[in-house]
Simulated assay, not measured.
Amino acid sequence: MASEVTYESVRDESEELSLMCDDDLTVYDRIQERCEREIGRADELIAAIRNAGVGDRVAGWVTRCMEQYQLIGSGMGQLKQHTYAQDEAVVKAKKLLEAGQGVYAGIAADMESVAERPFYVGDAVDAEDTAANTEIFETTGA
């Protein structure tokens, strides 16, 4: 069953989403640090393999692993950029929601004052209303 969407629920969800973005950025930083650490280890290991004369095949394996860490590390930059943009969009939307809520609160107050009036301005009888029975309607040609 769907829950009721209210101003408070949307505000709470936006705050939760902002916190999730912050958590994601922390995780991305940890992954980036891990990638950099593993790339450094791979460089050292490749140098040790070549010095030991183990062979190019083993060095190739380590190089491919290092390239994967480099690929993951470069992807973290894009993820961070998109997460920053998402967080900024959430903050902006929340500000717009709060500003809009103020506008709607003003409109609601106006509507309440209108509802309390004994009559509406539009209810007044004008000359057009009193002359409606004498209007001539012309048919248009085909």
Results as ranks from 00 to 15, higher is better:
residue 108 A to H: 09
residue 83 T to K: 03
residue 138 E to T: 08
residue 55 G to V: 00
residue 61 W to Q: 09
residue 96 L to G: 06
residue 130 T to R: 15
residue 11 R to W: 04
residue 73 G to P: 04
residue 11 R to E: 00
residue 5 V to I: 15
residue 4 E to L: 06
residue 10 V to H: 00
residue 56 D to K: 07
residue 125 V to K: 08
residue 40 G to H: 01
residue 23 D to G: 09
residue 97 L to K: 00
residue 88 E to R: 15
residue 122 G to D: 13
residue 45 L to Q: 05
residue 85 A to L: 10
residue 28 Y to M: 01
residue 60 G to Y: 14
residue 142 A to K: 15
residue 70 Q to N: 07
residue 110 D to F: 10
residue 53 G to R: 05
residue 37 R to M: 09
residue 9 S to N: 03
residue 44 E to H: 07
residue 11 R to I: 01
residue 111 M to Q: 06
residue 131 A to V: 06
residue 123 D to Y: 04
residue 141 G to L: 13
residue 72 I to L: 02
residue 112 E to C: 02
residue 123 D to S: 13
residue 76 M to P: 13
residue 10 V to A: 03
residue 58 V to L: 10
residue 67 E to N: 14
residue 12 D to H: 12
residue 59 A to K: 03
residue 111 M to K: 07
residue 104 Y to G: 11
residue 120 Y to M: 15
residue 120 Y to D: 13
residue 36 E to D: 13
residue 110 D to K: 13
residue 108 A to W: 11
residue 51 N to I: 04
residue 117 R to W: 12
residue 27 V to C: 00
residue 79 L to H: 04
residue 78 Q to A: 15
residue 29 D to H: 07
residue 131 A to P: 06
residue 43 D to R: 06
residue 96 L to C: 07
residue 114 V to K: 13
residue 127 A to H: 09
residue 43 D to W: 03
residue 113 S to T: 09
residue 106 G to S: 08
residue 46 I to Y: 04
residue 21 C to H: 00
residue 42 A to I: 01
residue 20 M to A: 07
residue 99 A to K: 08
residue 134 T to S: 14
residue 31 I to G: 00
residue 45 L to R: 02
residue 50 R to I: 02
residue 5 V to T: 08
